[in-house]
Nucleic acid binder design. Structure first.
Lengths: 184, 184
DNA sequence: ACTTTTACCGACCGTTCGGTAGGTAAGTGT
DNA sequence: ACACTTACCTACCGAACGGTCGGTAAAAGT
């Protein structure tokens, strides 16, 4: 969906139906034929984004042939690819900070973030108890979103790269810790 | 400045000169008498925000009568107060994600974030080398901004509270580590 | 005293906003 | 064959947008 790109690039309020129509090759009224309001269109876009996100990023969490560290890195690197394309950042975070107070799309955004946390948590839980994995997954995502913020401000991908290194190193440390416990 | 509140609450694009004028008690043309364009007004607002931020939040970093842990906690709690008031979140982060790609205000936003990182770094550097303190300060702010994101989505202050606990606990651990090195 | 500047207003500009009305041309069902 | 639906268009709506205009009334300068 081209509309996704537009919203991702320019945010909700700074994207007009005119622009969205142009991006799809339709006229504005043609777009309104398919979606009754801008808000409805955005809701559809968000469902689509969640689906893409699940298929392209979160699916990595269940590639059980890879060891957890590599799965985590691969997952994060896929997300980084989405974020650095046209320096868009994270779609969910962009919209969340823009519309979070009014809460127009909070339910969808929340589930998007929670799906993500669950996927990361599933990876981490191989090296730590489920509740610790869940907490750490949430923390990792928070740190990542902050890194994306700095990336958007500075255009310096190093912030994202550093984060990935930190996350993977942390997981390795947790893995050593868990295996030493098993040994004991 | 009442304009700050408006931009903080509703973002840049979703705040019209009409609303800003109403918030200040002026008419629109009266507002244009003081600021030639919306962009210029926003730039002034950002300077003002930085100044307030420095005076109210970052100044805590140099209250040398408090131990570092308490200084960090006080600083973070002050920021939390700003963020939870009307559930606005972090002004810099809101505007950064909304306008970061076009880069209209990136310079000011960057210095705002870097001032912040410097203030936190100054606190941390009492327990660790300067370069490590700087890295850790940046990391803490990233994690904090992520926590604010989740707070905006869920309206649950616990995300911020948990972050503060983590940050202070981390610093305490670093303090013990540094004192054990000094003993050796 | 009088001139100039400052702060502000109501009214208005052209443009764009989200959204609608009415029409057309290509399928689709029967 | 003919009705009906679908997909899309041009043209338009009132409201709101960022921004400007000419004027006024109070303050400041001299």
């Amino acid at each position: 969906m081209r509309c996704w790109e537009e919203f991702h690039l320019n945010g909700y309020y700074n994207t007009s139906m005119q622009k969205l129509a142009a991006a799809t090759g339709l006229q504005k009224a043609g777009l309104y034929h398919h979606y009754p309001t801008k808000e409805d269109l955005m809701r559809r876009v968000m469902e689509f984004a969640q689906e893409q996100f699940r298929n392209y990023v979160l699916s990595v969490a269940t590639e059980l042939d890879l060891p957890p560290e590599q799965r985590l890195e691969k997952l994060l690197r896929r997300h980084k690819k989405l974020a650095t394309l046209h320096r868009r950042g994270c779609f969910f975070a962009n919209i969340a900070l823009e519309t979070g107070r009014e809460g127009l799309f909070n339910e969808a955004l929340k589930t998007g973030m929670m799906d993500w946390a669950d996927a990361v948590s599933r990876i981490l839980s191989e090296y730590m108890p489920a509740d610790a994995a869940q907490r750490e997954a949430l923390r990792l995502i928070m740190e990542y979103e902050g890194a994306v913020l700095f990336y958007k401000l500075t255009a310096d991908e190093q912030h994202l790269e550093d984060f990935i290194h930190r996350a993977v190193a942390n997981l390795k440390q947790a893995s050593e810790h868990s295996s030493s416990i098993k040994q004991a």
